[in-house]
Deep mutational scan, measured.
Amino acid sequence: TTITITINGEELRIRGDHEEIHKILKAWEEDHNDEEIVRLIRELAER
């Protein structure tokens, strides 16, 4: 699965399995701050 998210003008492409993507979207849905979401995404992007 690949998704693209733009946060603060920075486009981040994430490839991951369903569970990893779900974790990010769940954090977003629960209204975590952008920095935390960006950190989760970067961790995935670095793999």
Rank of each mutant, 00 (worst) to 15 (best):
E36R: 08
N8Y: 05
H32E: 15
R47N: 15
H18L: 13
N33R: 08
A27H: 07
G9A: 03
K23H: 10
E43S: 03
E30Q: 12
D17F: 11
I24G: 00
W28H: 03
T4Q: 06
E43N: 03
H18V: 15
R13S: 14
K26L: 13
R47I: 15
I41V: 05
E35R: 06
T4E: 04
R47H: 15
R15S: 13
D31K: 08
I21P: 00
R47K: 15
I3P: 01
L40T: 04
R13E: 12
H18F: 14
E29R: 13
K26H: 09
I24F: 05
D17S: 15
T4P: 01
A45S: 04
E36M: 05
D34R: 11
A45M: 05
R15L: 14
I41D: 00
E20D: 08
D34S: 09
I37F: 11
T4Y: 12
R47F: 15
A45F: 03
H18A: 14
I7V: 07
T1S: 12
D34M: 11
I21D: 01
I7M: 07
E46C: 09
R39Q: 10
R13K: 13
T2D: 11
W28I: 07
I3N: 01
I37K: 01
E46N: 05
E10A: 07
L12K: 02
A45V: 08
T4M: 09
G9D: 04
E36S: 08
K23S: 07
E35G: 06
D31P: 03
N8K: 07
L25H: 03
R42Q: 14
E36F: 06
D34F: 13
K23L: 09
G9H: 03
K23E: 10
I5M: 05
H18G: 11
R42D: 04
D34L: 13
E19H: 11
R47M: 15
I37V: 12
T6M: 11
E36P: 01
I14N: 00
D31E: 06
E30S: 12
I24T: 03
T1Q: 13
E46D: 15
T6G: 02
L25V: 08
H22R: 12
I5L: 10
N33F: 15
T6D: 05
K26W: 07
I24N: 01
E29G: 07
N33W: 15
N33P: 05
G9Q: 04
I7S: 01
I5K: 00
L44R: 01
E10M: 08
H22T: 14
I5E: 00
W28E: 00
D31H: 12
I37S: 02
W28K: 01
N33V: 14
L44Y: 08
R15V: 14
V38G: 06
K23P: 04
E36D: 12
N8T: 03
H22F: 13
L44D: 01
E19W: 05
D17A: 07
R39K: 13
D17W: 08
V38I: 14
D31Y: 08
I41T: 01
E20S: 06
D31G: 13
E19L: 13
L44A: 04
R13C: 04
A45D: 08
E35I: 10
I3E: 02
W28M: 08
E43C: 09
I21L: 13
D31I: 07
I41Y: 02
L12D: 00
A27E: 06
K23C: 03
N8L: 08
I7T: 01
G16I: 11
E10K: 09
E10F: 04
I7W: 05
R15Q: 13
E29S: 10
L12H: 08
T4L: 11
R15Y: 14
R15F: 14
E46T: 03
N33Y: 15
R13P: 04
H22P: 02
D34T: 08
R47S: 15
L40V: 10
L12T: 03
L12R: 02
V38Y: 07
K26M: 13
E10R: 06
E35Q: 13
E29V: 11
E19T: 11
I37Y: 06
T1Y: 15
I3V: 12
L25T: 03
I7H: 03
V38L: 15
G9P: 00
R39W: 05
A27P: 00
I24E: 00
R47P: 15
I3M: 08
L40M: 09
E11Q: 12
A45Y: 03
G9T: 02
A45R: 02
K23R: 15
E11G: 04
D31R: 09
I21R: 01
I41L: 14
L44M: 13
I21K: 00
A45I: 13
R13T: 12
I24L: 14
V38E: 12
I21W: 06
R39F: 05
K23N: 12
E30A: 14
H32Y: 12
L12F: 15
R13G: 04
R13M: 15
E30G: 06
R13L: 07
A27M: 14
L44N: 02
K26R: 11
N8S: 09
T1A: 12
E29W: 09
E20K: 04
L25F: 08
I5Y: 01
A27C: 03
I7L: 08
E43H: 04
E36L: 07
L25P: 00
I24Y: 03
T6V: 13
D17H: 12
I37A: 07
R15A: 11
D17Q: 09
E20W: 06
E19R: 06
E43G: 02
I24K: 01
D31S: 08
G9E: 04
R42A: 08
E46K: 03
D17L: 06
K23F: 11
E46S: 03
E46I: 06
D31Q: 10
N8R: 10
H22D: 13
K26A: 14
D31V: 06
I14D: 00
T2N: 06
H22W: 14
I3Q: 03
E35W: 06
I3K: 04
I5Q: 00
K23V: 07
K26Y: 05
E46W: 03
R42E: 11
W28Q: 02
I37L: 15
L40S: 03
I41W: 03
E29M: 12
H18D: 12
L44T: 01
E20M: 06
V38D: 05
I14G: 01
I14C: 02
D34K: 11
E10S: 05
E20H: 05
G16S: 09
E19Y: 11
V38P: 02
V38S: 07
D31A: 09
H18E: 13
H18Y: 15
N8G: 12
A27T: 07
I7N: 01
T1V: 15
L44S: 02
T1R: 10
R42C: 13
V38R: 07
E29H: 09
R39L: 09
I21T: 03
I41R: 00
